[in-house]
């Protein structure tokens, strides 16, 4: 029989390390036997939870949206003789459906679900805005709406790819978030300037850039020094 030199407890034969403190078991008389009968098997219960409730919710939502959109088009066509305003509510409902349907039905890892949902959301939003532009004979989709939508999508994807799989964690999360917020704001001003005047002259985004960079540095500092992190956690915990 082996004992943990750190905790003083006897350890089961299948334990390679002390389950209490993680100290490795070193016993020349009775070395660790990986074939020893374990208290529990290695097989894990599936993490999947039932989709039944979600499927019902998705079905009800689809029927509801289809009915509401169809009614708008029908009433518009009957009373006005042609479809005019009904494109907007019907398009908005389609967009909303795309926003809600994938998160309800996807059963992948949280990071993958988020990335796929964000991609679908951006496509739906882009499609809706393009429809609005076409219906109003505007010329703002390509120079303004599309770059802004793409930029926000890039912001979400970059942060999700870093945060959800825990590539960055704890206080370090604040660093990419603040840096990408700064980039987003600068990019937004560039797009607005280019759309309105045709030239780019950065002003207000630089004022927003400074605090973002300071905050990113602050999060880097807090993440780097454990004592500072503990002190902040102690004083600010709720």
């Amino acid at each position: 029989m082996s004992y943990c030199v750190n905790c003083g407890v006897e350890l089961g034969k299948a334990e390679q390390r002390c389950p209490l403190c993680g100290t490795e078991v070193v016993n020349p008389n009775e070395p660790y036997d990986p074939k020893a009968k374990r208290l529990y098997p290695r097989q894990l219960d599936s993490p999947l939870v039932s989709l039944r409730g979600r499927r019902i919710a998705a079905l009800v939502m689809t029927l509801l949206f289809f009915f509401a959109g169809g009614m708008c088009i029908f009433l518009n066509a009957v009373y006005a003789g042609e479809v005019t305003w009904a494109y907007y509510p019907a398009g908005a409902l389609c967009m909303l459906w795309v926003f809600l349907f994938p998160p309800l039905m996807l059963q992948t890892k949280p990071a993958v679900t988020f990335l796929l949902s964000a991609l679908f959301d951006a496509l739906a939003l882009g499609g809706f805005l393009w429809m609005c532009e076409t219906l109003t004979d505007g010329a703002w989709f390509l120079p303004f709406a599309l770059p802004v939508t793409g930029m926000v999508l890039g912001f979400l994807i970059l942060n999700a790819a870093l945060i959800l799989p825990r590539v960055v964690k704890g206080a370090y999360i604040g660093v990419p978030v603040m840096l990408t917020v700064a980039l987003l704001l600068v990019g937004l001003e560039c797009i607005v300037d280019a759309y309105l005047s045709g030239t780019v002259h950065l002003t207000w985004s630089l004022y927003a850039l400074a605090p973002c960079l300071i905050l990113a540095g602050f999060f880097l500092f807090v993440g780097r020094y454990r004592t500072v992190k503990e002190e902040l956690r102690r004083r600010l915990h709720m």
């Binding site: 003083g8 407890v9 089961g12 389950p19 208290l39």
Partner: peptide, 21 residues
């Protein structure tokens, strides 16, 4: 868990540990 069981060991009670790790 560690506090709990080491406390028992200090009181002279033998403890045998297994886990699902």
């Amino acid at each position: 868990e560690r506090e709990f069981f080491t406390q028992l060991v200090k009181l002279g009670i033998p403890v045998k540990i297994e886990s699902n790790d």
